[in-house]
Design a protein around this nucleic acid. Structure first.
Lengths: 205, 205
DNA sequence: GTCTATAGCCGGATAGAC
DNA sequence: GTCTATCCGGCTATAGAC
């Protein structure tokens, strides 16, 4: 009976463990996004996730390990998003435009906290954090996806064009964030979309 | 004689004081740029400036006050730079292109630490720092200068175009920083310049 | 697996001698 | 004005009971 109780407790704890782990990552993900990595403490995360501080170290040895988990989580989310776009649009061009449109979906978040990939990369690069390459890989995932769509369209300048699209998008999100300007985000993203449209049509722009 | 000594000491101290103050600001400016504001401690600055920690509080009551001094210092440097451009080129278009060319001047710094205005704004916005508007004003200074050049050329879309130029430049510096990619900076900045050239010529681009 | 208590460190900031 | 010594608080991380 003692074993039974222990077992069911353990099983439940195992389930809870995975659940807890995910809760921690999700809470950290959000807080790292909102406040930045350095500015977020374990106390902040503990409070947000409803998990006691000391319990973190069962799941993550260090704060860096937690960051690693968060970045991988973001990559999964990103890939899921791109996969959704792949499935909901057959036309690569429609996919691309849907992505650019979608970047304005989380409008308020972007204005308040910037781009989840760009701001994280910037912070980690500046502080010389070992995880900066991993954050960079988030940008790389999206750049490669854009390039893939462009190549499917038949552009032989797909890599360069993808880089420019990413560059311009990042510029827009950075300035919208810096100025806290909602209209800037919407208007400049529209400009980017029109520019992409014109390029793909072979029109002057 | 005691008064005299005190006076000369005071005068010398005043001179030293101003010198020390400037040394502190210059050192902080550099470190805030290289490591970021939050990641830079007084100890770091003290070491770099050759001034004992405790002495800081004679010049700056808080770290925020020091940040304020650094931002104002950056604005002064920026205005000096723009004034130099004004004087070395009569043609507003030449001024503008000189600025865009000059952004690549500190190539290595930009690749390693990003744009001094953009990265600071991003960090302060994200952490919700009270000084974020002051950092934003740095971007505003440069945006207004660009708009002034465009207006002098006779563009009636000067404000919008200035914003777009700034947006694209920030995108380039962000990505070059995130990727640590020197070539990206040079190539994409060249693209921006060609685009500006084409727009000002009224050519398709 | 869970959680409490706390160690150990380093940050910004202060007091006060000189 | 200059500098030393130190406080206090929050941080990451650990030890160990349950």
């Amino acid at each position: 009976m003692a074993e039974q109780a222990a077992k069911s407790l353990s099983a439940e704890a195992g389930g809870r463990g995975a659940e807890n782990r995910e809760r921690i990552v999700a809470a950290a993900d959000r807080l790292f996004y909102e406040k930045g990595f350095q500015a977020t403490s374990f106390s902040d995360i503990a409070e947000a996730a409803g998990v006691p501080k000391g319990n973190f170290y069962y799941y993550f040895k260090t704060k860096d390990a937690l960051l690693e988990g968060v970045i991988d989580w973001r990559r999964q989310c990103l890939k899921k998003l791109l996969e959704t776009l792949n499935q909901s649009h057959d036309d690569p061009r429609a996919r691309l435009m849907a992505l650019l449109q979608g970047l304005c979906a989380g409008e308020d978040d972007i204005v308040r906290y910037g781009c989840p990939m760009g701001t994280l990369s910037a912070e980690l690069c500046k502080s010389g954090h070992e995880m900066k390459e991993r954050a960079q890989s988030l940008l790389e995932v999206i750049r490669e996806w854009i390039a893939a769509q462009l190549q499917a369209i038949g552009r032989d300048d797909a890599p360069e064009l993808a880089r420019e699209i990413l560059t311009r998008s990042q510029g827009v999100t950075l300035l919208a964030h810096a100025y806290g300007d909602h209209a800037l985000l919407v208007e400049e993203m529209a400009r980017v979309r029109h520019w992409v449209d014109a390029v793909l049509d072979g029109r002057p722009h």
